[in-house]
Structure formats: structure tokens, C-alpha cells
């Protein structure tokens, strides 16, 4: 996939379409995430991060950030937290996690799989949320929540990473998209 200054308008239009589609998938996955029973508070599977994980290699940085904005908005709408302080946590977590994943992927490329990328993303996203909790709500008590919160995040990130890696390798739909961009 050659990305040059002369890339045709149809190609950039296709990319924008892809962002819209993936944003919708994020919103759908947020709804699924919301349905999953949570026996432990703070447990999240984070399946809404799948489209972001997959599009790390697909989209240029500005469009990827646009996708993160769509994801955060979608989550806020589905979870009903759009106008509450919870939304702040969601946004901070999503952005720091996406930026960390982007950073790791751009630096290491094929030397790291989506499992490692996802784990780093989860670590950064969750750490950002803990810092925010430390500042906004719980004071130093936030540190006590940190270990189980980070541990659960690591486990779900590994599982999601395995799924994303397999999906990225095998999906014919994704292969088609790659060819058309």
C-alpha cells in the first residue's frame, strides 16, 4: 500500500468511509461490552478497542485519532455516560491507550504482534485512568485499586490481542480493504 501525495481522492474517501464503518463497529461492540455481566467492579473486556487495534496498520494517524473520538463518543452514548465524569475517564483511557499502541506499532512494526501492542495499550490506558482517579476522586486510595485493575486489563488485553492478530491475518474482508486503500 503506497501512501503518496498523489493518492487519488477516491482513496482518501475510501479511508474516511472505513473510519465511519469502524466507528460504527466500535459503538456496536460497546453495546456488547455493556451487556457482559461484571461480577467484579472495574472489570472490562475492552472489546470496543478491537477496531482500533486492527486499524493501527490501516489508517494514517489523524484518521486513527478520529476513530478514537468516534469510539469514545459511541461508548458515551451507549453507556449513558456522555455527560458525566465517567466520560472523562473513558476519553483519557482511550486516547492514552491508542497513542501508546500507535507508538509501539510504528516503532517496532512486525517485531511485535498485536498481543504485545494491546498489552501496552491496556497498561497505558488503565494507568491514565488510575492517575485520573487519584486526582479527581479517591486521592491516594486509588493506588489500592491499581493492582487488580491493571492485572485484569493485562489478561483481557492478551485475549483481545490473540483474537485481533488472528483476525488481521485471516479476514478476507480486511485483506480486501487493504488492497483497496
Amino acid at each position: 500500500m503506497a501512501r503518496t501525495l498523489t493518492s487519488s481522492p477516491t482513496s482518501s474517501a475510501r479511508r474516511l468511509d472505513l473510519v465511519a464503518l469502524l466507528g460504527a463497529v466500535c459503538m456496536f461492540l460497546s453495546a456488547i461490552e455493556y451487556m457482559i455481566p461484571k461480577p467484579i467492579p472495574f472489570l472490562r473486556v475492552g472489546i470496543a478497542n478491537l477496531p482500533i487495534l486492527i486499524s493501527l496498520d490501516l489508517l494514517p494517524v489523524p484518521l486513527l485519532l478520529l476513530l478514537v473520538v468516534l469510539k469514545v463518543l459511541g461508548q458515551g452514548i451507549v453507556g449513558g455516560s456522555l455527560f458525566s465524569y465517567v466520560f472523562l475517564f473513558s476519553a483519557a483511557g482511550s486516547f492514552s491507550s491508542a497513542l501508546a499502541m500507535l507508538f509501539v506499532r510504528r516503532i517496532f512494526g512486525g517485531r511485535i504482534t498485536l498481543v504485545g501492542v494491546g498489552v501496552i495499550g491496556a497498561l497505558c490506558g488503565n494507568a491514565a485512568q488510575i492517575l485520573l482517579a487519584r486526582v479527581l476522586i479517591f486521592g491516594e486510595g486509588a493506588w489500592l485499586i491499581a493492582p487488580p485493575f491493571l492485572a485484569l486489563g493485562t489478561i483481557t488485553a492478551v485475549l483481545l490481542g490473540i483474537f485481533a492478530e488472528r483476525f488481521a491475518k485471516r479476514s478476507r474482508w480486511l485483506a480486501g480493504i487493504r488492497g483497496s486503500l
Binding site: T113, L150, T154
Partner: peptide, 27 residues
């Protein structure tokens, strides 16, 4: 699917951070 060295490094880093938080929080 095969994990690469950097994947294990990422997981290790994550475990280290969790360990550091645990020690500082529960000591």
C-alpha cells in the same frame, strides 16, 4: 500464531508495573 520476544517483554513490563503498584499499595 506465534508470539514474539517483544510481546513477552510487553507482558513482563505490565507484570512489573502491577508488582510495583502492589508492593507500594499493600506493604
Amino acid at each position: 500464531m506465534k508470539l514474539k520476544a517483544l510481546d513477552f517483554l510487553a507482558i513482563l513490563l505490565s507484570l512489573l508495573v502491577i508488582g510495583a503498584f502492589s508492593i507500594s499499595a499493600y506493604a
